[in-house]
Amino acid sequence: MNDWTPMAVLGAMSAVLIVSGVLAYRQKYVAWLALKSFLPGWPGLAGLYLGMAFAAILVLKSMLDIGVEGNAVLALAYLVLFAVFALSLAIGIIGMFWLPHFLLPRWVKEMVDEIERGEDPLSRDLRPGGRLHGRLGVPKTMPEPNRRQRREGRRKP
C-alpha cells in the first residue's frame, strides 16, 4: 500500500463528513435523522466535527513533513491546529451521544420544541380525530354513554 493511500482515504472521508455536516446544519440533508433510532445524539451534526478533526490530521501530517523545528510561528500554528483537532474530535465523538444546546441549529431546537408541545405531524395524527388515532397501540377512546345508560349506571347499588 502506498504512503499516500491512507491520506487520500482520510481526505475523502473528511470532505464527505464536512459537506454532509454543513448540509445537516443548514437543514438541506436530514436523512441522517434515521440514525437517531440507533444513537441517542446527533450523528449528522457530529459528522461536521469529525470531518474537521480528520482534515486537521491531514494538515498536521503535512506540517510535520515540512518540519516545524526552528520556526516558532509554524510551531505555534501546529499547536493551535492540534488544539482544533483535539476539540473537534471530542465534540464529534460526544456528539454521537449528546450535543449541548448551543451547538444545535435553530431548526433542530424548533423541531424538539414542537415534539415536546405535541405539535409535530406524528403527534397531530395520533390525537383523537387524527388519521392514526386508534392505531399503533394507542387505544380509541370509549364513546360517551347516552342519557339512558348514565341513568341506569346511577341506579345500580
Rank of each mutant, 00 (worst) to 15 (best):
Ser37Gln: 14
Arg135Asn: 12
Gly118Glu: 05
Glu114Leu: 02
Ser123Thr: 02
Gly118Asp: 03
Met7Pro: 12
Leu79Glu: 14
Arg155Lys: 09
Ile66Trp: 08
Ala86Lys: 10
Leu64Val: 14
Arg148Ile: 10
Thr141Ile: 15
Lys156Gly: 11
Gly51Asp: 05
Val30Trp: 11
Ser62Asp: 08
Asp3Lys: 15
Glu152Leu: 15
Tyr78Asp: 12
Leu58Asn: 07
Val112Arg: 13
Val84Asn: 10
Leu58Phe: 00
Glu110Trp: 01
Trp4Met: 12
Asp65Ala: 12
Trp107Pro: 04
Val19Thr: 10
Phe85Gly: 00
His133Asp: 12
Pro100Lys: 06
Met142Gly: 07
Leu33Asp: 11
Lys156His: 09
Trp4Leu: 14
Ile57Met: 06
Met63Glu: 06
Met13Ser: 08
Arg151Cys: 10
Ile91Glu: 04
Leu103His: 01
Ile66Leu: 13
Ile66Asp: 04
Pro139Leu: 04
Leu50Met: 08
Leu126Val: 02
Lys61Leu: 10
Gly70Val: 03
Arg150Cys: 10
Gly51Gln: 11
Leu50Pro: 00
Ile18Asn: 03
Phe82Cys: 07
Leu76Lys: 11
Arg117Cys: 08
Asn71His: 07
Ile18Lys: 00
Leu10Met: 12
Leu39Arg: 01
Leu60His: 06
Pro43Met: 00
Ala72Thr: 13
Arg151Val: 10
Gln27Ile: 08
Trp107Thr: 09
Ile91Phe: 07
Leu50Arg: 05
Ser88Thr: 02
Lys36Asp: 10
Leu104Pro: 01
Asp65Tyr: 12
Pro143Ala: 06
Arg26His: 07
Leu122Ser: 02
Met63Val: 05
Asp125Arg: 12
Pro139Tyr: 03
Arg135Met: 15
Ser14Val: 00
Gly153Val: 10
Ile57Ser: 11
Tyr29Trp: 15
Trp98Gly: 06
Ser20Glu: 05
Val22Asn: 02
Leu89Thr: 02
Arg124Phe: 01
Ile57Thr: 05
Thr5Cys: 06
Val68Ile: 11
Ser123Arg: 13
Glu69Thr: 15
Met111Arg: 15
Arg106Val: 03
Val73Trp: 14
Gly70His: 02
Arg155Leu: 14
Gly130Ile: 01
Val19Pro: 05
Val80Gln: 13
Leu64Ile: 11
Lys156Gln: 07
Leu35Ser: 13
Gly51Cys: 01
Trp98Met: 00
Val73Lys: 11
Leu64Tyr: 13
Leu33Asn: 10
Val30Ala: 13
Leu79Pro: 08
